[in-house]
């Protein structure tokens, strides 16, 4: 999306949708340190939930607990047997002779053509190794990986944290478009007020425990909460006129 373009309108908010995820008293400890303290929330089906909070708030830990790769106390209950797609903040190691085609085929052999189009990837990238992709290209490959088997839920851990501004816009638009078209439930960990403001149906603000669980408007209207979550109280105007927080 070019800066002059207006973002697509938010998807209709799900009203009265059944909960696809119920988290009750989720607690995670590392040694004596409490990373998450009795976190409780529900996510209605089809929601785009933004998870925000300062560094060390437990956002990534929460996603890992939802994926089942983090030991925890309390209950994480998915509705039925949902397929969950996941996009990590970054890959641990990309110095591997693994092509994009081989990577996607690991999850869904031969069925990734549509996904490439959905995320706007050139099919010629299929023969490239993941280590040679730009940050934006790699992130879109990861999104393609997450949606290739048509999941009901997508978990994104700061999908724009390692890309430049132009690619950040494209990735956020791509996520929004995927969510709008498929009505997939999307949990998006982000530091980005722009994403919260334009795309989220709901916001869960964390700092070890739940600080806020409600509409984006409710969060953005509370300067003290915004300062605590985003580290700022001064909204600024970006080049495209979108209200934005500055450092």
């Amino acid at each position: 999306m070019s800066p002059s373009q207006t973002p697509a309108p938010p998807a209709p908010r799900p009203v009265g949708a059944p909960a696809i995820l119920t988290v009750t008293d989720l607690t995670v400890r590392r040694g004596a340190r409490l990373l998450l303290d009795r976190v409780t929330f529900t996510v209605p089906q089809g929601t785009l939930l933004a998870i925000v909070g300062p560094n060390g708030a437990g956002k990534t830990t929460l996603l890992r607990a939802l994926l089942g790769s983090q030991e925890h106390e309390g209950e994480v209950r998915w509705s039925g047997s949902v397929r969950v797609g996941y996009v990590p903040q970054k890959l641990v190691d990309t110095d591997i002779p693994l092509t994009v085609e081989e990577f996607l085929a690991m999850k869904c052999p031969g069925a990734y053509g549509t996904c490439l189009a959905t995320v706007g990837l050139d099919p010629r990238l299929l023969d490239e190794t993941i280590g040679t992709l730009s940050g934006g290209e790699l992130q879109r490959v990861l999104i393609a990986w997450a949606i290739v088997d048509d999941p009901q839920v997508l978990l994104f851990d700061e999908p724009t944290s390692n890309v430049d501004l132009g690619s950040e816009e494209v990735i956020l638009e791509t996520l929004h478009e995927v969510q709008r078209r498929t009505r997939v439930t999307l949990l998006l960990v982000t530091h980005d007020l722009h994403a919260v403001h334009h795309f989220a149906d709901r916001v869960l603000a964390l700092d070890g425990r739940v600080l806020y669980d409600g509409s984006p408007g409710g969060l953005l209207e509370d300067p003290e909460l915004v300062r605590r979550v985003f580290g700022t109280t001064h909204p600024a105007h970006r080049h495209d006129g979108v209200e934005e927080a500055s450092r």
Binding site: S134, D164, F230
Partner: peptide, 21 residues
């Protein structure tokens, strides 16, 4: 082979001027 830059990163990686981890 080395990692390519994103098209919008000719002058270095641009960042939205917002809070970051």
């Amino acid at each position: 082979p080395t990692r390519r830059a994103d098209p919008g990163a000719a002058d270095g990686p641009g960042r939205r001027p917002g809070p970051r981890s």
